[in-house]
Design a protein around this nucleic acid. Structure first.
Length: 579
DNA sequence: GCCGTTTTCGGCCCGACTGTTTTCAGTCG
């Protein structure tokens, strides 16, 4: 069996979960998950790693487990654990209130092996008779067992962002709030999130706490105290929202703490510890003097540790703490204010809601220097795709607008379909008339990887195609996208001078942060575009930028931070060399 | 299980909360 890194990572993670269920020493468990993490983070392919013990966090033990797995195609350590721990216990780790230790005891003493046998043991009151458990915990467990499976464990960020927006507006109206901020994985711009966290600075937690309960769609109040209000909102799905209330001088450290990731926090705390300091959500304590330092904002907090401000998107403990000790990386990182235009949007000519002129006016109001109008091509009938005649007509209108605007340049573009047979929707002869050609797949998603790659490579090898839109076709939490060999796509993009898109629509975020990072490493140019079908979708740019930042993308990599002139020469360059 | 100018043992991030306990273990973020 051909083994890859993902297999190794899965092996180590499986071992960690099974050890947890055995109630093993938590540091041993952590050692396996850390090993998995560090392998994932290592940019080398499996075949390029000759000595695993050279990777941090991997010693003799883990290394020999890995080597045996690679050599034999199976792992004795894993098989042994699987014999000791029933597979049905694994999903039960997700039940709130159940960790490895308790589950392990339920298995050993009551022979609980899956959700059904747990339910039986709860109903028959065997669980509450067990020392360390009790009536109350049994009731809670039964309740959360019923809730399980009613909704996906993590929600796509696109589902959550509008709710966060609504909460932001509600918090704005409470005068007793001195400052507030979203925290948690939403602030870090993870693709999926479990709950919503807000940090609130206030001197009047009682009043604020009451006003928080006025939020629309509160279905249940889980907790309401001096420091924390926790509610469940009944939105499209039920979602848990935690509000943490602290004093103003604790706000920065609390925000940092609850923004996470927990791996980032652990690393920061290790750093502090090496200076004889202790980080908690309330401040940084000097262990010797017991003096507690507080900060007016996160910038100061990081500065205390001689670090540049690390943006939330990067806080995943993937090397950011070392990197932001340097000025260079912090300053090269992309920022929303660097974006000069949007190179992918639709109008009423195809399936957009606003006219060409309306979209142009909206872009001017945003202060953009340029946009590309990229309506669908003729193949996409359902979207009223444009043929050659209509595109030429549209170009006339664009020319008229370009004459009128001194402050905005409009590229006459098209989002051209890559057809199922691998051909393109327009001839080279016609494409030459267009300023900016995007190619994209909108059909036959279920083709083999070979067919999909042939289509994409045909498009990238075309001298007039400057950009591949939403390269994987995924919809987060809804659709995986087509079968694609990303390494090959990135290599071809680099070879052919074709840019790849980070589609900013929060349902897509395609390329993902991780792939965008790989693409940048290989020298591929990126474009961050909203694919807007109406005014308000132009505002999605911030999510695209956040995704790029999560992938450590620097300003220079992104073509829509360039001048219009530079974009023109990028497109022309490809046309020249490939003629 | 990993790690080490306090190196072969004894740590490993910190604090709150909960329920079960007479002083704490387990879970969570």
């Amino acid at each position: 069996m051909e083994m890859n890194k993902k297999d190794i990572i899965r092996l180590l993670e499986q071992i960690a979960v099974l050890l947890e269920l055995k109630g093993e020493n938590s540091f041993k468990i952590a050692a396996y998950s850390r090993a998995a993490q560090n392998i994932e983070r290592d940019s080398r392919a499996l075949s390029e790693i000759d000595d695993f013990t050279k990777i941090k966090g991997i010693g003799k033990g883990t290394s020999s487990v890995i080597m045996q797995y690679i050599h034999d195609g199976k792992s004795e350590a894993l098989e042994e654990l699987k014999k000791q721990v029933p597979a049905g216990l694994i999903p039960l780790l997700q039940v709130p209130g159940l960790g490895g230790k308790k589950l392990s005891r339920l298995y050993q003493e009551l022979n609980v092996t899956d959700a059904e046998s747990l339910r039986e043991a709860l109903v028959s009151k065997e669980v509450e008779a067990l020392p360390g458990f009790g009536k109350k915990s049994a009731e809670k467990l039964l309740a959360s067992l019923q809730e399980m499976g009613k909704r996906p464990e993590r929600l796509p960020i696109a589902v959550v962002l509008p709710i966060v927006e609504k909460l932001n507006q509600h918090l704005e109206t409470i005068p007793e709030i001195r400052a507030f901020s979203i925290a948690g994985s939403v602030r870090r711009m993870r693709e999926t999130v479990k709950d919503i966290d807000f940090i609130i600075a206030t001197e009047q937690p009682d009043i604020v706490g009451n006003k928080l309960l006025d939020i629309e769609n509160v279905k249940e109040v889980i907790a309401k105290g001096q420091t924390k209000v926790s509610v469940i909102l009944a939105e499209q799905y039920d979602i848990n929202v935690d509000f943490r209330m602290v004093k103003e001088n604790e706000f920065a450290t609390t925000l940092h703490h609850f923004t996470g990731s927990s791996e980032h926090n652990v690393h920061m705390r290790q750093l502090a510890k090496s200076h004889d300091e202790k980080i908690s959500e309330y401040g940084v304590e000097n262990v010797a003097s017991q003096e507690i330092l507080q900060f007016t904002d996160e910038e100061q907090f990081y500065a205390h540790f001689n670090l540049r401000y690390i943006p939330p998107e990067l806080r995943e403990d993937s090397g950011e703490i070392e990197a932001f000790a340097e000025r260079k990386i912090a300053e090269g990182l992309l920022h929303l204010s660097h974006i000069k235009g949007d190179l992918h949007m639709h109008t009423t000519w195809s399936d957009g809601a606003q006219s060409l002129e309306e979209m142009a006016e909206a872009a001017r109001r945003k202060g953009y220097e340029y946009i590309a109008i990229t309506d669908h091509s003729k193949f996409l009938r359902v979207a009223n795709g444009l043929d050659e005649t209509r595109l030429r007509k549209q170009k006339e209108e664009i020319n008229r607008l370009n004459e009128r605007y001194a402050d905005l340049h409009i590229f006459s573009g098209v989002e051209m379909d890559i057809l199922p047979d691998g051909s393109l929707d327009f001839s080279d002869k016609f494409l030459r008339e267009m300023d900016f050609v995007i190619a994209a797949i909108h059909s036959s998603f279920s083709q083999s990887q070979e067919q999909i790659m042939t289509r994409l490579k045909n498009a990238m090898n075309n001298p007039y195609v400057s950009l591949i839109a939403h390269p994987t076709g995924r919809l987060i939490g809804k659709r995986d996208g087509y079968a694609i060999d990303m390494e090959e796509l990135i290599a071809t993009a680099a070879e052919t001078n074709t840019a790849l898109e980070i589609n900013a629509n929060p349902n897509r975020l395609d390329l993902s942060a991780a792939w965008a990072k790989k693409a940048q490493e290989k020298g591929v140019v990126l474009s961050i575009d909203t694919d807007a079908h109406n005014y308000s979708m132009l505002e999605d740019m911030k999510y695209g930028v956040a995704t790029a930042r999560k992938g450590w993308i620097s300003k220079n990599t992104v073509m829509n931070t360039w001048t219009a002139e530079k974009i023109k020469s990028f497109c022309n360059h490809k046309r020249m060399i490939e003629k």
